[in-house]
Write a protein that binds this DNA or RNA. Structure first.
Length: 332
DNA sequence: AAGCCGGGGCA
DNA sequence: TGCCCAGGCTT
């Protein structure tokens, strides 16, 4: 069993924090973030009273930034509505921001010993193989099949150990690619192993389409400052700071964008144009060029909701990794 | 019920 | 370069 700082504790705050960080994130990547958060915010009250931007900055690089916003909102609700104590059952926990079925079950079983199965990707896989369940795990309507199967075998006296063992088995032995059946403690009784269908399970069918996007970043410079804007809702990187952005539906073409800028901001002076920078996400593929400029009109700045920041300030702001990569590349 | 949301590891 | 990892929220 791997020794991790959020194990062997009953503190719901630590368990909750680790679970939110570890959603869609590997232990090796999440561990340093967990340690930074615990150091900076030792309890839920400390986290609740932090500014949201600071929390986002702490989260920078982990992705799925709605997790950080929900984390902060949840901490505030726990402090304001529950006097700093997390609700103690599976159903109530799910009313909090960012806590769904999996995370609620993890907290309820680890912190409060409630006998409810925590079905994450690892557990889906273990259950699908052990019981040879062929239903598509990507289809939400099949969740109940897996949940109820686990509910039948979870021991009422130590549900926390059961959940931890199931996840650990999936993470270390019953792995997606090459399950280590020879050393698996439950290989006897595993239906998939009996039938030799381990690698076919779990069944997972999902259609994913990738959006190709083209970004022109306009870096308006003034003295040692650059204009930036906080990103709004309805898109990626909510709440993070971006440079002034013109998005194009067609492939990057510097001439076209230069004409567009000059038409809107006649006095603008282009100082530099970077080579295209590519950024690949799971569902989006972004190509960006960074254009250094000066002399925007004050009307333009106001309409675009841009404000100037000193370069040292920009380092402290929460930003998409794409921006960070570009800025670091420029220094080197 | 379906679509959206970021990173990193690895072949 | 392409494929894999996955839980929760919004529409």
């Amino acid at each position: 069993m791997r020794q991790l700082p959020w194990r062997n504790t009953n503190d719901p705050y630590k368990i909750w924090l680790s679970e939110i960080i570890l959603q869609q994130t590997r232990v090796a990547q999440g561990l340093p973030y967990y340690q930074n958060f615990i150091e900076k915010y030792p309890d839920v009250k400390a986290l609740a009273s932090a500014p949201e931007e600071e929390v986002l900055r702490m989260w920078q690089g982990l992705g799925y930034y709605s997790r950080a916003r929900n984390l902060h909102a949840c901490a505030k609700e726990v402090v304001e509505k529950y006097d700093g104590f997390f609700p103690e059952d599976y159903i109530s926990l799910q009313t909090l921001k960012g806590i769904g079925k999996y995370t609620a079950a993890a907290i309820a079983s680890f912190a409060f010993k409630e006998a409810v199965p925590a079905v994450d990707g690892n557990v889906f896989r273990v259950l699908a193989r052990y019981f040879a369940i062929e239903e598509n795990i990507a289809d939400t309507k099949n969740f109940a099949i897996f949940f109820n199967t686990a509910l039948e075998i979870i021991p009422k006296d130590q549900p926390d150990l059961f959940n931890q063992a199931m996840m650990e088995l999936g993470a270390t032995i019953c792995t997606p690619g090459n399950p280590a059946c020879l050393v698996c403690p439950v290989s006897v009784g595993c239906t998939a192993r009996e039938k030799g269908t381990q690698k076919k399970l779990p069944v997972k069918e999902k259609k994913v389409k990738v959006r190709q996007r083209f970004f022109y970043y306009l870096m308006w410079e003034k003295d040692d400052k650059i204009a930036m804007k906080k990103r709004g809702p309805q898109d990626i990187w909510q709440g993070l700071f971006d440079f002034d952005l013109i998005e194009s539906k067609t492939a990057l073409n510097n001439n076209v964008v230069e004409e567009t800028i000059l038409a809107e901001v006649p006095d603008a002076e282009v100082l530099s144009i970077s080579a295209p920078v590519k950024h690949v996400l799971t569902h989006q593929r972004i190509e960006a060029v960074f254009i250094g400029l000066k002399n925007p009109s004050s009307v333009y700045l106001k309409e675009r909701e841009l404000s100037y920041f000193k370069k040292e300030q920009i380092e402290e702001l929460p930003k998409p990794i794409l921006i960070d990569k570009y800025l670091k590349g420029r220094i080197n």
